[in-house]
Amino acid sequence: MNRSKAQPLIALLLSDLKRARRHGGQSLLPLVFLFSVVAMIPLGIGPGPNLLQAIAPGMIWVAALLSGLLALDGLFKSDFDDGTLEQWWVGDQPVIRLVLVRLGSHWLITALPVIVLTPVAAQMLYLPNAALGLLMLTLLIGTPILSLVGGLASALTLGTRQGGALLGLLIFPLIVPVLIFSTGAVSAFLDGLPVRPYLLLLVALLVLALSLVPLATAAALRLNIE
């Protein structure tokens, strides 16, 4: 891709990041959610290390998923409202690439901080250090899938007024496999079983989402603009 084609994409990425920095809450909300869940679980079910250790991968993953869902609200909404979204179709802009950039910046803003602070959450739930790397790897592969699927759902619900509930209904069935394979990988590792199949399945899901979802998202956005 030559420089002149990449320039609009870089411009969009930079402006997204700048705006996110201006409203610090966008990155903080998922973190606050993650740590609320992680801090409350021991209070709810008792602080026994064995029990916590067993549920740690699942709990962290569920918290990461739900916190990602919280952040999906503004993905296209503000652009839709202020008229910058319709500008994506003016001229010969590569809309699918713009969609990918938007999803990428959303992932950087909301998912990356969660992944970076996962070691802290893992410590709080007594996850063995040996499994931490694998958990973070599954998050690294899995959260982009969440961003992609969430982006599609938020594009589909753009025109509806109370899209939040619908958003959840749309996303959960699609994201369940990611949760199953991710936590399955960590559990298998803790039981001394091979983790490769789980990871390969996750990567396959990511490739599938990366290749199909931006197309569908661009089409859904267009429908809402019309």
């Binding site: 002149s4 320039q7 609009p8 870089i10 411009a11 969009l12 930079l14 402006s15 700048k18 705006r19 201006r22 409203h23 409202d81 202020d82 008229g83 910058t84 319709e86 500008q87 001229g91 010969d92 802009q93």
Partner: peptide
């Protein structure tokens, strides 16, 4: 109708963005 201007960017930031965004 909708101006296509980002409320949370300053005037100059909006224009810098537009300059880069359009080919």
């Amino acid at each position: 109708h909708r101006a296509g201007v980002k409320d949370d960017l300053s005037c100059i930031e909006n224009l810098v963005f537009m300059q880069r965004f359009y080919p």
